[in-house]
């Protein structure tokens, strides 16, 4: 089976979600990578994770990836190199490419997957629903290429020891009006400490904190534990913290060694983003809060009492 993996670059390296998919793809068949951007800087890491070939569009010159990269992929596919399956990490960029490509090829897309299996040409993907308590397996019908999006952290990234991938140019054809949106400026939100989706400890706060100023408790605790602060969508929507802090279905997926949820109810959309944590500690004043259903340690209490004491105890160590 021929499998393509959509690789996304960030600061000159493939994103961890891309490497996870390359690793999984290796177990399914021959792997080719495709990047919307320059290939040279990524070739080594991509090759080490199992792809022999890396198609690269070259710099997009400010064009949004969706229309441009999907058109480049379509051109390669119609030129004769057609994969059986294309795996996309679920990022903002890759989601646009995946969607545009599905229309161009007239193929169905399946997203939010956490696993994939291939048997005798049939490809089946697995998606958690209802906050992760039910797993649905769906099999693609008809002919490939089958298009599938995967949640970050669905697989562990492991190098295979391969050499650098061969970079092959995949030019972007003229796409007409669909490609008219241009990026005129890029803003990077600075964060200190470990990245939310890579930290060994994540401390998240929710609406139970009561007010924005109290989020400081979360930041202080995260710092003491050398972890990253996170948030529920309720307080992101309220403007207390930037969107980049959000954990959950529409935010980041985290799988730290320890996840502390303070004043978070445990809505299904929050839980899908943190359920894979090794250890979960919840602090909530409502003993019926759903978060306690998945907590290894639950403290039924007021965050305004528990957090300051916890911080004090850690500071005095």
């Amino acid at each position: 089976m021929n499998v393509w993996v959509y690789v996304q670059g960030s600061k000159g390296a493939p994103t961890s979600a891309s490497l996870e998919l390359l690793t999984k793809a290796r177990s399914l068949g021959d792997v080719t990578a495709f990047v919307g951007g320059d290939g040279a800087a990524l070739a080594e890491a991509v090759g080490q994770h199992g792809a022999a070939k890396l198609y690269a569009t070259g710099d997009l010159g400010g064009r949004l990836p969706g229309p441009a990269v999907s058109a480049a992929m379509q051109a390669v596919i119609e030129g004769g190199d057609s994969p059986d399956l294309i795996m996309f990490p679920q990022s903002y960029e890759a989601r646009d490419v995946l969607s545009r490509l599905s229309v161009k090829l007239g193929k169905t897309v399946l997203t939010n997957n956490v696993d994939v299996a291939a048997a005798g040409g049939a490809v089946t993907v697995t998606t958690p629903i209802f906050g992760g308590n039910t797993l649905v397996s769906t099999t693609f019908t008809g002919d490939g290429p089958f298009l599938a999006g995967f949640r970050p952290k669905s697989f562990a990234a492991e190098p295979s020891g391969g050499g650098a991938a061969e970079v092959v140019a995949a030019a972007v054809p003229e796409v007409g009006p669909t490609g008219a949106a241009m990026v005129v400026a890029t803003h990077v939100e600075e964060t200190s400490g470990p990245k939310l989706d890579e930290a060994a400890v994540v401390v998240s706060g929710g609406r139970g904190l009561g007010e924005q100023a109290k989020y400081e408790l979360i930041e202080t605790l995260a710092k003491l534990l050398r972890g990253a602060p996170g948030a529920s969508r309720a307080i992101v929507d309220a403007g207390w913290v930037p969107y980049s802090y959000q954990v959950g279905q529409t935010g980041k997926v985290v799988k730290p060694g320890v996840y502390i949820a303070a004043g978070i109810s445990g809505a299904t959309q929050h839980m899908v983003g943190m359920k894979g944590s090794k250890n979960i500690i919840a602090i909530n004043k409502d003993k019926e809060a759903p978060i306690f259903g998945i907590a290894d340690l639950g403290i039924v209490g007021d965050v305004h009492k528990v957090l300051p004491k916890l911080i004090e105890a850690l500071q005095s160590r």
Partner: peptide
């Protein structure tokens, strides 16, 4: 998991 009511010493459980 273990769910306990905070009696003022809940923080120590976490520690």
């Amino acid at each position: 998991g273990e769910i306990v009511e905070d009696d003022g010493e809940g923080f120590a459980k976490i520690v």
